[in-house]
Design a protein around this nucleic acid. Structure first.
Lengths: 182, 182
DNA sequence: GAGGAAGGTTCATTCACCAGACCTGCGATC
DNA sequence: GATCGCAGGTCTGGTGAATGAACCTTCCTC
């Protein structure tokens, strides 16, 4: 609930409220989830999320202003840029992963849509996002590989991003949005 | 974004979207935060959050319907009930704590408003909510004591809940809403 | 039987979300 | 050299939700 009037929690003595001012608005966390999946371009966010264009514009600008995303040119002519996670944005992986895990336990019957493993050893992450085999702190996003849950059949989405994610995919690696597999 | 029309993310192949349908609406996570702090009564939520009454009614009902909160009578005549966390609700502590920690690192300059320690040993929790001294999994909410951050002066709120939280307080322990300290 | 507390409901207004149409470079096509 | 298409937007009108304030009900106390 950032920027716009009436959407802040300024009277709360709580850093949770501060965090929600940045990422608490509708769509914001889903946009960031996509950014972790490797989505970078406006149109890929648009088709994968099914979000109204004007709302996507507003959210991306707000997240850039909040220092969670940054704009990075990927071609010069015509000038085009993608949206990438900043260091602060990368640190949102923990809460995002935990919330997703909570959702798979309590807000759906059929379990998770995607599974997340430590790239170095292939072990699925535990509930705080650490590697049970290698131990230690939670695994950083760049060292995580996601794959579809084989027990979850029938992904009904047909957009470029969803199609790219049917194969195992390292987090943060750009989605090949123009690739049309034969 | 639960219940009402236009507020769901049903097309998302993602358990994060499922979780956000339950707790993603404005105010929902702040209500749950208060529930962890020991707030149970309608009027305590109301004065501590500064939320419109109608919205509080809607959110509490939605959270009860989602199985995150439950209504528990605390007196019979007249019948009054409080709102308590269910088991599913208690498991939201992880994401909530991590999001709050992120907020204290990136969304505020002066650091956290509250500190959280393992009740058994007094050690402050680490970034995933585990006890650095005792090790192991994240500490459960019932074994956590919160206290104000001494470096954060000037809490501007004067409601019963804020006043109760100036002293160290175990999570989930009911706030004494009627106690007026001399 | 007046006043007050707890937990709501009802109301008008404001605001944000939504879907869709439109606009602006720029490059490739015909 | 007009048209097509793509990427990344902006603009607009309609709708639903949030907001703040007032009101209601039940019970208790004085």
């Amino acid at each position: 609930m950032p920027m716009a009037l009436g959407t802040d929690y300024e009277l709360q003595d709580c850093t949770l409220a501060r965090a929600l001012e940045v990422v608490g608005e509708r769509w914001s966390l889903l946009i960031l989830r996509d950014a972790f999946y490797g989505v970078q371009r406006f149109n890929d966010f648009l088709t994968h999320l099914g979000i109204p264009r004007a709302v996507l514009t507003a959210r991306l600008n707000a997240l850039v202003a909040a220092g969670v995303l940054r704009k990075e040119p990927y071609q010069q002519t015509p000038l085009r840029h993608g949206y990438l996670l900043t260091d602060a944005g990368l640190e949102l992986w923990g809460p995002l992963y935990q919330l997703s895990r909570w959702g798979s336990r309590h807000a759906t019957e059929a379990g998770p849509y995607h599974l997340f493993a430590h790239a170095a050893c292939g072990t699925d992450l535990d509930l705080v996002g650490a590697c049970p085999t290698c131990g230690g702190a939670p695994v950083r996003p760049a060292e995580i590989v996601m794959r579809p849950n084989p027990a979850r059949t029938g992904s009904r989405r047909e957009d470029a991003v969803s199609l790219a994610l049917v194969r195992p995919h390292p987090l943060l690696e750009p989605i090949a949005s123009a690739a049309a597999p034969a």
